[in-house]
Each structure stands twice: as C-alpha cells, then as structure tokens.
Simulated assay, not measured.
Amino acid sequence: MTIQGIDVAYTAVATAENGRDGRVSTDDGRLDVVVNPPKEMGGSGAGTNPEQLFAAGYSACFQGALGVVARKEKADISGSTVTAAVSIGKTEAGGFGLQVAISASIPNLDAETARSLVEKAHQVCPYSNATRGNITVDLSVV
C-alpha cells in the first residue's frame, strides 16, 4: 500500500486526557468535550465518545466533497444531507475495529445521478481516502 503525500494546508491539533473516559480539547479552545464510553460498552454514556466525533467529522467532510463534485457536474444538491454511522466492535484478531455507513439524501436528483455523485464524493473525501482499504465503508442514497 502506498502512503499518500499531501501539501499541508491546515493541521488540527487535539489532546485527550484519560483516553475514552476523560476529556478532549483542541489547541485553539473551540472544542472541549467530556468523553465517556457509551452505555453499550459499559460506560456511563454521560459525554460524547470518539465514534460520535468521528461520525460528525466524516459526515461534514463527505457533505463538502459531495458539494465539490456537484459543482463540477452542475448538479443541484440543495437540501441534501449526509449521515455517517460509525460502529465499533471486536475484530476476529481480538482488538477493536470500526465500520462506517454513509447515507446521503439528495432530494433534487434522481436516484442514479445521486448515487453517481455519492460514489464520486467517496473518491475525493479526505476521510474516505484515509479509511479506504482499512475499514468497511458502505454507501447508500436514501
């Protein structure tokens, strides 16, 4: 597998204290959240968790990529939404892994055009590029 090089435009910096049961904050102070394991994993569920944060970032990034592709193809994606469902569970090797389901709603387009745009967005989205070949990412148009 080839590692992709980039011309860095921006670097986000976040620091975690106490791992999955603590706090995460960014160096600019714009994000400062309590993280706790979800109840389904034996935690309190009182705060957010890394999977929710990953889902939020992935959905926003994918929506942005969808916009880039739509502009190039002069497609109307107004009113569209992208939802990322991030799941965590045990792997066969004994560790933990993730899988993602991306669903897009694009009300102004027919199903075939919407599906084509979603597949193209998956090729340019930085989160998709980072996860490609590492985890399962399912795409759907709803």
Rank of each mutant, 00 (worst) to 15 (best):
R30C: 09
G89Y: 06
N134S: 02
Y127F: 15
R132K: 09
V124G: 05
L117S: 05
Q4E: 15
V137P: 07
N18W: 06
M41A: 12
G5H: 15
V82F: 03
T91L: 13
V68E: 14
A85W: 04
A75Q: 15
Q52M: 14
N134H: 03
R132D: 05
G42H: 11
V124T: 13
T136G: 07
A16C: 05
D138N: 15
E40W: 11
V82L: 06
A111L: 12
S87N: 13
E17W: 00
A121P: 00
V13L: 06
R115W: 08
P107T: 10
N18H: 15
A75C: 14
C61E: 03
P50K: 02
T136Y: 04
L53P: 08
S25N: 02
T131C: 04
T91D: 11
G64E: 12
Y10A: 11
E40C: 02
S25I: 06
K90W: 01
P37L: 15
D7P: 03
R30H: 15
V35N: 10
K72R: 13
I106M: 04
L117M: 05
A93N: 08
K39G: 02
K39L: 10
A56P: 11
A104T: 12
E119N: 09
V24P: 00
T83A: 07
M1W: 00
M41L: 15
A85L: 14
T26P: 04
A130G: 03
E17K: 05
K74A: 15
G67K: 12
A130F: 01
A130P: 04
E17Q: 03
M41T: 07
D76V: 01
Y10E: 14
T2M: 06
G64P: 08
A12C: 01
A121I: 01
Q99I: 00
A84L: 10
S116Y: 03
V142M: 05
T136C: 05
E92Y: 04
P50G: 08
V86N: 01
Q123K: 07
G42W: 06
F54V: 01
E112N: 08
S87D: 15
T2Y: 09
A101R: 06
R115A: 12
L31R: 01
V13A: 07
G67E: 10
V24E: 03
R71G: 09
K90G: 13
D7A: 14
G45V: 01
S44R: 01
D7T: 14
D7W: 02
D28Y: 01
I77D: 02
A70L: 05
G22D: 07
S128E: 00
H122F: 10
T11V: 05
A14N: 08
G5L: 15
V142N: 13
G67C: 11
D21K: 04
G97E: 11
P37H: 04
K72I: 00
I6T: 10
A12P: 00
A60Y: 04
A104I: 05
P126Q: 05
V33T: 11
H122W: 09
E92Q: 14
A70K: 04
S80Q: 04
I3C: 01
L66A: 07
I6L: 12
N108H: 13
G42R: 10
V35D: 02
P38L: 06
L66P: 12
G22I: 03
P126H: 06
S128D: 10
V124H: 12
P126E: 11
A101K: 07
I106S: 03
N18I: 02
L98S: 04
D110S: 03
P37I: 00
R132Q: 06
V68N: 13
A55F: 01
L139T: 01
D27N: 13
G45F: 03
